[in-house]
């Protein structure tokens, strides 16, 4: 694996340019009995997300009198990866669920819902890198479709460094063999960051450069989110 080149003649293994996103597909309200839902695909990576709520919260000690709470569960289907993932939560999915919750939380007017909960669920059906950011994009759409009051949508993408080149939207192979990768989410209208995770080795200059490309990519993703929401509710 290590020997294989990830960049050849300025192009990536799937033929993309460094700053190029994969083919992105978004579909709204795919789960009938959820309050809102969405399916988002970045290439082969597929996330389906649904929002149930705001709904009553039990046991009672979980309730907060002055505000509602947001709960998020990120989960991978056993068949979504090459080596079957045994069902149920693990350390990785627990952490990812938490950072997704923090990426989405700031945009929701939780104070409108004292004592109750908004539950967001993201299922990864197929994983080819960048699953958490795909899940965030799907959840952001699902929240909007559920009629949850929000300050802004949330757009999310990954960036990183492969074979010495800075790239956006890493696929599975790139993700596994990258020199650095960064998961990023922002509130596009407000222009603030709500998810930032990185691992690898980068210079300060590279970090800043990656943040800039992440922002530009997120604005492209945001345009797609606007389009899918407007088309759905106009065309209904």
């Amino acid at each position: 694996m290590k020997e294989e080149k990830l960049m050849v003649d300025g192009k990536r293994i799937d033929g993309r340019l460094p700053e190029q996103l994969r083919d992105i597909k978004m579909k709204l309200n795919v789960v009938t009995r959820a309050n809102g839902s969405a399916e988002v695909k970045f290439g082969k990576t597929t996330a389906i997300a649904s929002v149930h709520g705001p709904r009553a919260l039990f046991p009672r000690y979980l309730q907060e009198s002055g505000t509602g709470i947001l709960r998020i569960r990120y989960n991978m289907a056993p068949f979504s990866v090459n080596d079957r993932k045994s069902p149920g939560p693990d350390r990785r999915s627990t952490e990812i669920s938490k950072v997704i919750r923090l990426a989405l939380g700031p945009t929701i007017f939780l104070e409108d819902f004292p004592k109750i909960t908004i539950d967001g669920f993201a299922e990864i059906i197929e994983a080819d890198g960048s699953t958490r950011v795909t899940a965030i994009n799907a959840l952001s759409l699902a929240l909007a479709a559920a009629g949850i009051p929000m300050e802004d949508l949330v757009a999310s993408c990954s960036v990183g460094k492969i074979d010495g080149t800075l790239v956006v939207d890493l696929n599975g192979k790139e993700d596994n063999n990258s020199e650095a990768d960064m998961a990023f989410a922002m509130l596009p209208n407000k222009g603030v960051i709500s998810l930032l995770q990185m691992d690898g080795a980068l210079t300060k200059k590279e970090v800043l450069k990656l943040l800039q490309s992440a922002k530009e990519s997120c604005m492209k993703i945001y345009e797609m989110q606007i389009k899918v929401l407007k088309d759905f509710y106009k065309g209904e």
Partner: peptide, 24 residues
Amino acid sequence: SKFVGVPRIDENEISVIPLSGVYL
């Protein structure tokens, strides 16, 4: 706007009517 909805601007008020959501 807080919602996916239809804006309503009448004489003295500006609001958005959500197109989905639970009853509060």
